[in-house]
Amino acid sequence: MTSKKVILTGSFGVGKTSLFNQFIYARFSDRYLTTIGVKVNKKVVKVGDREISLLLWDIAGEVTQDKVPTSYFLGASGIVYVFDLTRPLTYKNIETDINYLKDLLPGGIIKIVGNKKDLVSEEQIEAVKNSLSVPVNITTSAKTGENVSDLFQELGTDLIG
C-alpha cells in the first residue's frame, strides 16, 4: 500500500483539527483547543481497487504560512489549506499563502477548503468564493461532516493518479 504525507494548514481556529478528527474518528467537539506543534495520524482511503494510506500532519495554525516551520512540509505529497468561511481574516492572505505553498511544494497537490459551511448560507458561500483570486476546491463542515470524506477521497484520487 502506498503511503503519502499530507499537511493540514491554514490560520488558527479555522477547523483543521476538527476536519482531522471528523475524518479520522468521525467525531466533532465544540470545545476549541489550539493545536500545539503538530499532531500526526493516518487513515487508509480506498480509490477504486487501490488503497492509499494518508499520513495527515495537523499543524498548529498561523496567520500567514511563512510562519510555519518549513521542515514540516518536507517530503509532503499534498497540502490541505483550510480557511473559515465566516472569518474574512482567515482568507485575506490566501493568494500569498497559496503561492508560498506552491513554491515550497512544486508539483504537489494543494486543496483549498472553505470550512464551517454549516454557519453560512449558499449565497454567502458563493460571495466568498467570488471574492477570492484562487479557486476553492471544496466547502466543508467539520461539525456536520458534510463533504469531509469527499475532500480526502478527492485528495487520495489525485495523489494516486
Partner: peptide
C-alpha cells in the same frame, strides 16, 4: 502501537527541535 503514526510523530518532533 501504530508504527506509521509513531514514525510521523518522531519526525515531527525531530523537525521541531532541529528547526
Amino acid at each position: 502501537i501504530d508504527q506509521d503514526v509513531i514514525a510521523g510523530m518522531l519526525t515531527a518532533i525531530k523537525s521541531f527541535v532541529e528547526d
